[in-house]
Simulated assay, not measured.
Amino acid sequence: MTIRLRSHHLLCLLAYVGKGYGPAFTANYDVIAERLGRGEEILIVSGPDDICAPLLGEPESHCLQESVVERDRLAARDVGELLARPIRAGLRLDLDAATLTAMRRAFATGLTRNACLGCEWVELCSVVAAGGYQDTRVQRPDPSKQS
């Protein structure tokens, strides 16, 4: 299967520790984190994605706001520069252990944090990154360290 993600969720998944907008949101995100950990492919989409799904029934869902679209634009630019390829709708991406490590390193040093400005979760993500991504839900085993 394929996991549909909007661009700024490429950053959010780096520091996800099981907290979110409510029980339905976190339960859904936990399933997505597990699927990412198993190596399911990511499909970049424009607009609401699989993570947004539980929030779309809410009146004035933040997933549809212009500020979130701007976060997508900034994240696509920064992650694209990091991975040396354009991040745009239709791109298929494998989040292998090396890519996840590179993305977390860039996030922790601030290289890919432009999209985070104004996000209500910025403090939590900063603490998670500063703590070495302890207890994050998206994990990929490093094949070079397995016997």
Rank of each mutant, 00 (worst) to 15 (best):
R113L: 09
M103D: 00
C116I: 02
A115I: 03
L100D: 00
R104P: 00
L83A: 10
A84H: 13
L82S: 10
L82R: 09
R85H: 13
A115M: 04
F107T: 05
L95Q: 01
L91S: 12
I87P: 08
R105D: 15
F107E: 01
T101R: 15
P86W: 00
T101N: 04
A89L: 02
P86K: 14
A84N: 13
L95V: 11
T99P: 01
A115K: 03
A84V: 09
R88L: 07
P86L: 03
R104N: 01
L111Q: 14
I87L: 12
L100T: 06
L111D: 15
R92F: 03
M103K: 02
L93C: 05
W121A: 14
D94V: 13
C119I: 05
L100F: 06
A108H: 09
N114G: 09
D94H: 14
R113P: 04
R85S: 06
R113S: 14
L82G: 10
I87C: 08
A84K: 15
E120M: 07
F107R: 01
A89D: 07
R92A: 13
P86R: 15
G90M: 09
W121V: 07
T101V: 08
A102Q: 12
A102H: 00
E120W: 12
A84T: 04
A108I: 03
R88Q: 13
L111G: 15
R92Y: 05
V122K: 13
D94R: 15
G110I: 12
R105A: 15
D94G: 11
G110S: 10
A84I: 01
R105Q: 14
L82E: 11
M103E: 01
A106I: 04
T109L: 10
A97Q: 11
F107D: 01
N114P: 14
P86D: 14
M103Q: 03
L111A: 15
A115T: 01
A89W: 01
C116T: 04
